[in-house]
């Protein structure tokens, strides 16, 4: 079943066109990655899906509903949540408060399920459990990344959007984060992950899209791209 469909999406920053008519789809249960160099338009794509950027033309459909012009905060209620690029945690809040922000969109009647999700997040990221009371702004880059992902999970999303989860992390930590992403998917969450450094992303994905200066230039099974010489040269640093 198709969960997310983006069709011919064009997005501008003033006069600069960041997306030149891209089409991407994500099916329920998949991990899909969007790879591309710095400035290709990956972050813009995710921001537009989340409603932070206005669409110039094209459409976004989520769970069969046209959300192209829906205000951003309502999209979270529909079951879509993003862990933004870089250190997108609330720096002045504690770990627990950040996670509670993730559950902001959930109803009071769900409080039992929210508690379960706290346990689930602490299970996935034991580090966060040890640091419940720590102010997020004082944590290391890796810990903040875990917090950003955990926080997004607290909304109990059907589709999790991850913007460069490996950015700025030590190789050991990168592997760990990707293992956790895979585990989250195994537990039933569909994932669209954006990455510049593509090896890890492709190795856990079902399918992938290659983005170059605002256009999709390839889309294929992730395995096929991993084996492709030109892709290896361009994005896998070989």
């Amino acid at each position: 079943m198709q969960l997310l469909e983006i069709k011919d999406l064009e997005v501008f920053y003033g006069k600069i066109q960041a997306l030149r008519g891209i089409s991407v789809s994500v099916n329920s249960g998949e991990i899909v990655s969007l790879i591309g160099a710095n400035g290709a338009g990956k972050t813009t794509t995710l921001k537009t899906i989340s409603g932070l950027r206005k669409v110039h033309s094209g459409s976004i459909t989520f769970k069969g509903e046209d959300i192209t012009n829906m205000v951003g905060h309502k999209r979270v209620h529909l079951g879509l949540c993003q862990a933004p690029e870089g250190r997108g945690v609330f720096p002045g809040m504690t770990v627990v408060e950040n996670l509670e922000m993730g559950a902001y969109s959930r109803k009071k009647s769900e409080s039992g399920k929210v508690k379960e999700d706290f346990d689930r997040v602490f299970d996935l990221f034991p580090r966060l459990n040890e640091r419940r009371k720590q102010i997020a702004g004082t944590m290391s880059g890796g810990e903040q990344q875990m917090l950003a992902i955990g926080r997004a999970l607290m909304s109990s999303p059907e589709l999790l959007l991850l913007d460069e989860p490996s950015m700025g992390l030590a190789p050991m930590l990168v592997s760990q984060i990707f293992d956790i992403i895979q585990e989250i998917n195994r537990q039933g969450t569909t994932i669209l992950v954006v990455e510049q450094n593509a090896t890890k992303a492709l190795s856990i994905s079902n399918r992938a899209y290659v983005l170059e200066t605002g256009s999709v230039t390839r889309s294929a099974d992730a395995k096929e791209l991993l084996d492709d010489d030109s892709i290896r040269k361009a994005y896998l640093g070989e």
């Binding site: 951003g72 905060h73 997108g88 609330f90 997004a152």
Partner: peptide, 9 residues
């Protein structure tokens, strides 16, 4: 903007 991503109106 991150607040919007969390569903804050």
């Amino acid at each position: 903007s991150t607040a919007v991503l969390m569903g804050v109106n």
